[in-house]
């Protein structure tokens, strides 16, 4: 039975790269601590493959033909896509793909009643994949990656319960369809509160972000699924905050487990709240902080 050895959620705001140098020291400290911790944990996990769920941001498909989940099957993933380079301000990168795992994922999710789409050509990556790949050193580590770009913003949007179900199917696929000795890392890329393209572009909902980080780190998935509605996420930043649904897919795959965050920070120029969570994947952990 393959094993999930790493599970994390982290934002991918483009300012975390292009605008980081000009940020205040206390903001930089939280960003550095968060992504360094996630990178070190990923390296320690010695995973054979990393599957990343992230908001597609309307980067790959037209609004009238918009997939809820799009798997990148390429043998090599290159980014960022040309138009996003000056906006992110990052270097070009290449990450090894895992076409066999990607194909198995497509087949396995289809068999489990989850319609995904898959593409062998290089997907167009913006900050969604580029930021975590660079800040957690995926590009340098050599770990093969399967990106899954997700509809978090084109109505109708798969809500928190559907994304959790997709995550449960993902967990079942990993445990039963992948090679028995395979070690799998999962990353949900997106959030925290932000409203890209909206009238409140600079709005960051600090109270929501702190509530969310505490809740996902607690392992209380029942409360999370009851309260993290699309309406609540839209109120915390329309068209952006709902990309936390990528975290929900990861949580569905791992089930209730406690996690830890590495601080929280807000910076106006990032236009996004920043904080990440690493869930404890060691065996025999209590299902929630309350049960510990």
């Amino acid at each position: 039975m393959a094993e999930i050895v790493y599970a994390a959620g982290a934002p991918h705001a483009p300012g975390l790269i292009g605008l980081l140098e000009a940020a205040p020291p206390d903001v930089k400290d939280v960003v550095a601590h968060t992504y360094r911790s996630l990178a070190e944990a990923m390296a320690s996990a010695k995973a054979d493959v990393l599957i990343v769920f992230a908001n597609d941001h309307l980067a790959n498909s037209r609004v009238r033909a918009y997939p809820d989940f799009l798997i990148g099957m390429a043998a090599e993933h290159r980014g960022p896509y040309e138009w996003f380079k000056p906006w992110i301000g990052c270097e070009d990168y290449t990450v090894k793909g895992a076409p066999d795992v990607a194909a198995a994922l497509f087949d396995g999710m289809t068999r489990r009643g989850v319609r995904m789409f898959a593409q062998s050509e290089n997907l167009k990556f913006d900050d969604n994949i580029s930021v975590p790949v660079l800040l957690t050193n995926v590009a340098g580590s050599g770990i093969p990656m399967v990106p899954v770009l997700q509809n978090c913003t084109v109505p109708p949007i798969p809500d928190q319960r559907r994304c959790y179900e997709v995550g449960q199917a993902l967990g079942d696929f990993i445990r039963h369809d992948l090679p028995a000795d395979m070690r799998v890392a999962l990353l949900g890329s997106g959030g925290l509160s932000h409203e890209p393209g909206g009238a409140r572009y600079y709005f960051i909902d600090e109270a929501f972000d702190r509530w969310f980080l505490d809740l996902v780190a607690s392992g209380d998935h029942e409360t999370l699924l009851n309260e993290l509605t699309l309406e609540k996420m839209e109120a915390a930043g329309s068209g952006g905050t709902a990309e936390l649904l990528a975290w929900i897919v990861v949580l569905g795959a791992i089930g209730p487990k406690p996690g830890k965050s590495f601080g929280y920070t807000v910076h106006k120029d990032f236009k996004c709240g920043v904080g990440g969570v690493l869930w404890d994947m060691s065996p025999n952990m209590p299902k929630s902080r309350a049960a510990a």
Partner: peptide, 25 residues
């Protein structure tokens, strides 16, 4: 769609981090 609206602003006013992109926002 607001997300594409944000990108349209960058296509028109500038797309570089901290410079044209800020003007666009």
């Amino acid at each position: 769609h607001p997300y594409l609206g944000g990108q349209f602003a960058r296509l028109i006013f500038g797309n570089e981090a901290g410079k044209g992109a800020t003007v666009a926002v």
